[in-house]
Amino acid sequence: MSIDDAIDKACSSVGINPPKRREYGKWLQTDTLSGKNGKGDGRLIINETHVTAHNWQTGENVTVGIGGDVEKRDRQKIAKQIEFSKRKQEADARRAAQIADALVGAARVGCHPYLAAKGFRDEKAMVVSVADVRRIGGDYLVPEPGCVSAIVIPARIGGKVTSSQLIWENGVKKFLFGGTTAGASHRLCAGVDTWLCEGFATALTVRTALHGIKIKPTVLVCFSASNIAAIADRLENRVFIAAENDKPLPQFNGLGASEFYARKTSLPYAMPPEVGTDFNDLHQQKSIFAVQRALTALMANATRQKGAS
């Protein structure tokens, strides 16, 4: 299979457009097939023997092998470019970690409009001003001129900050360029059982719901559905997943991305009943009691299944 064929196959498999330029050994940004809502949410990397495409919206990752029709000299050229790109990626990751630390250092604990919009008017988080974001991280992290401040959510692997997510007043979320988020999470609170969530607002809802029935859990923000599966592999004790009810997609056998990856973990999971919603939506639309019923039903069912095994 030629490089062009491998690119086309990988991109179509995950629902993204082929990138407009070709470079080797580095992730190339492109758009998904979902139009304006998928702008910049596709990634593709070309290596000596294979092409990998990633859809950030769905978390789907597909690798397609390149056949033997690539000339030896071309493979050597590609290998050199890949080695250069690898060193650059490592440098970008180190720089992103430094920026993430600096953003956390510049942040102050306080309320934020995003939290109020999600039903947590009195909740406090680490908040950084737009001036500090521009100074420390760059203009690309600011989605529009009217932004004033963002919530900073550090992404950690083994206790070390590797990147951060910024959430602005309008709900736009930005990650640091080059930062490592695969396998990274943010711990919202610590307790006995562990609950895995994709987003910050969902994690706040899960924590609030369980605290309301005198349960103190560990709640982790995992940033994406596919990352939940990666993090779940290294956890012990009881673990539950607060999944989102995503739109079903053909590449996930008719399941939404969140449910698809939750099933891959073989862990107990729950999700709200309406397609296109998460547990924070259920919290705001129905009440925190509706969330509590869903989570307690999941825990009770998991206990019954364990007792029957």
Results as ranks from 00 to 15, higher is better:
residue 204 L to W: 09
residue 290 A to L: 01
residue 15 G to S: 04
residue 230 A to I: 08
residue 101 D to E: 13
residue 5 D to R: 14
residue 157 I to Y: 08
residue 32 T to Y: 04
residue 32 T to S: 13
residue 255 L to F: 03
residue 92 D to L: 14
residue 191 G to V: 11
residue 38 G to M: 10
residue 118 K to I: 06
residue 154 P to R: 02
residue 20 K to N: 10
residue 10 A to V: 07
residue 55 N to Y: 03
residue 76 Q to T: 05
residue 139 D to Y: 05
residue 165 Q to K: 13
residue 124 K to Y: 00
residue 280 N to E: 10
residue 149 S to M: 05
residue 189 C to L: 12
residue 297 A to R: 12
residue 3 I to P: 03
residue 203 A to N: 09
residue 8 D to Y: 04
residue 232 A to L: 04
residue 136 I to N: 02
residue 76 Q to E: 10
residue 125 A to W: 05
residue 188 L to T: 06
residue 226 S to Y: 00
residue 178 G to M: 09
residue 221 V to Y: 06
residue 14 V to E: 00
residue 250 P to F: 00
residue 271 M to T: 08
residue 76 Q to R: 08
residue 136 I to F: 01
residue 152 V to S: 00
residue 5 D to I: 12
residue 123 E to R: 14
residue 77 K to A: 10
residue 27 W to K: 08
residue 121 R to V: 13
residue 38 G to K: 09
residue 283 H to Y: 08
residue 253 N to K: 15
residue 30 T to P: 12
residue 50 H to M: 10
residue 131 A to D: 15
residue 100 A to N: 10
residue 48 E to M: 14
residue 159 G to F: 07
residue 48 E to P: 08
residue 176 L to G: 05
residue 11 C to A: 12
residue 107 A to E: 02
residue 60 E to D: 15
residue 198 E to R: 01
residue 36 K to M: 13
residue 121 R to A: 15
residue 153 I to F: 00
residue 148 V to D: 12
residue 5 D to A: 15
residue 251 Q to V: 05
residue 245 N to P: 06
residue 263 R to G: 15
residue 139 D to M: 10
residue 60 E to L: 14
residue 49 T to D: 15
residue 83 E to W: 00
residue 57 Q to P: 02
residue 307 G to T: 07
residue 57 Q to G: 04
residue 104 V to P: 15
residue 113 P to H: 01
residue 115 L to Q: 10
residue 208 T to Y: 07
residue 42 G to L: 06
residue 88 K to Q: 14
residue 47 N to S: 10
residue 254 G to P: 06
residue 80 K to Q: 12
residue 96 A to Q: 14
residue 62 V to I: 11
residue 117 A to H: 09
residue 219 V to R: 14
residue 80 K to M: 07
residue 129 S to G: 03
residue 206 V to H: 11
residue 114 Y to Q: 01
residue 269 Y to T: 06
residue 236 E to L: 10
residue 39 K to S: 12
residue 179 G to Q: 02
residue 26 K to F: 06
residue 114 Y to E: 07
residue 153 I to W: 00
residue 217 P to R: 10
residue 180 T to A: 05
residue 208 T to G: 06
residue 167 I to M: 08
residue 308 A to V: 13
residue 307 G to W: 06
residue 205 T to H: 09
residue 294 A to G: 07
residue 176 L to S: 04
residue 172 V to L: 08
residue 185 S to D: 12
residue 219 V to S: 13
residue 155 A to T: 12
residue 309 S to M: 10
residue 26 K to C: 11
residue 43 R to M: 09
residue 226 S to V: 04
residue 309 S to P: 00
residue 241 I to S: 03
residue 219 V to M: 08
residue 156 R to S: 12
residue 4 D to S: 15
residue 43 R to I: 07
residue 261 Y to R: 02
residue 155 A to M: 13
residue 152 V to C: 03
residue 239 V to L: 05
residue 29 Q to S: 13
residue 266 S to L: 11
residue 20 K to A: 12
residue 107 A to W: 01
residue 3 I to K: 09
residue 79 A to H: 03
residue 178 G to N: 11
residue 123 E to P: 00
residue 276 G to Q: 02
residue 169 E to I: 13
residue 45 I to C: 14
residue 235 L to T: 11
residue 282 L to I: 02
residue 36 K to E: 15
residue 210 L to W: 08
residue 211 H to K: 07
residue 250 P to S: 09
residue 107 A to M: 01
residue 271 M to H: 14
residue 299 M to N: 04
residue 57 Q to K: 09
residue 236 E to C: 14
residue 58 T to L: 06
residue 179 G to A: 05
residue 78 I to T: 05
residue 279 F to P: 06
residue 263 R to Y: 01
residue 13 S to T: 09
residue 179 G to R: 04
residue 36 K to R: 13
